[in-house]
Design a protein around this nucleic acid. Structure first.
Lengths: 135, 135
DNA sequence: TGAACTGTAATAATAATAATTACAAATGAA
DNA sequence: TTCATTTGTAATTATTATTATTACAGTTCA
């Protein structure tokens, strides 16, 4: 179980509050309270998904790539999701067993249905709206 | 990310097909293709949640504790869930930062909403129905 | 030119997960 | 009664995943 969604949401919320000002990875790391290199790695992923933009060099840093109202929580969820939401077993079920032979197909189906539902729900909330929850 | 949900679902499906016959942890381990001790640990958890019954001694083994139509996939999900579905970060956000101070509250709220939605969905499908998906 | 950044690779440290070994206790059958 | 078979569980080891750290090249601006 990793914390990439939480960390990316934290990053996005900070960038949202910063508006047009850029934030440095060191500043963000100070708020999240994890290593700046990990923050830059997450930022790198968010940039890859076109949610964040960066500027190198002195007085460089990070900003949202577009207005926070146009980025949904689902976008962040999608950007960080590498593992199936219902978990991932490392076993390979016995293909000689009629259940073992098919179970992954059915479990994957279930996983995909749940995943779609989550994306639908999180798609309704923007980063702007999420940030507005803070006092 | 662990595979407890998958493994427990595999176990429940096997027990469902076995009906009143008991299955041994060794037999189940052969289908799931993981260590029998881990299977017994998962079974132990399922017993704790009253989804499975066991019989010790020679010719002992495991059965469902009640008809498969009365057990939902959500019951299994609930039995194995120890970690938040959206992930768990190990950092402690900086309380001096207005965002860091509050973010866990809002992320937990989001997590709980998603979790409720999943339980609602998985509550509609019984283990009997899931097992019927197999040829 | 140099200070302040990003970008990224490589490595080490820590934590979570799974496998294995071992054995006590229960039970049914020879 | 005794023994083979099975659950139940603890303890340990092995493996994998996650996070932290170090290092440094490249960019940009004053």
């Amino acid at each position: 179980m990793n914390g990439r969604f939480q960390i990316s949401m934290h990053i996005m919320t900070l960038l949202c509050t910063a508006g047009n000002d850029v934030l440095s990875s060191d500043y963000i790391a100070g708020s999240v309270n994890i290593n700046p290199v990990l923050i830059r790695k997450e930022l790198s992923n968010l940039i890859k998904h076109k949610l964040v933009a960066s500027k190198e060099g002195k007085s460089g840093g990070y900003t949202l790539s577009k207005p926070a109202a146009q980025i949904s929580v689902a976008d962040v969820y999608h950007a960080v999701q590498v593992n199936p939401v219902l978990g991932k077993a490392r076993n390979t079920p016995n293909p000689k067993c009629p259940i073992g032979k098919e179970i992954n197909k059915h479990l994957n189906q279930l996983n995909n249905e749940v995943d779609q539902m989550i994306i639908k729900k999180l798609g309704k909330q923007s980063i702007a709206a999420f940030t507005k929850l803070f006092d």
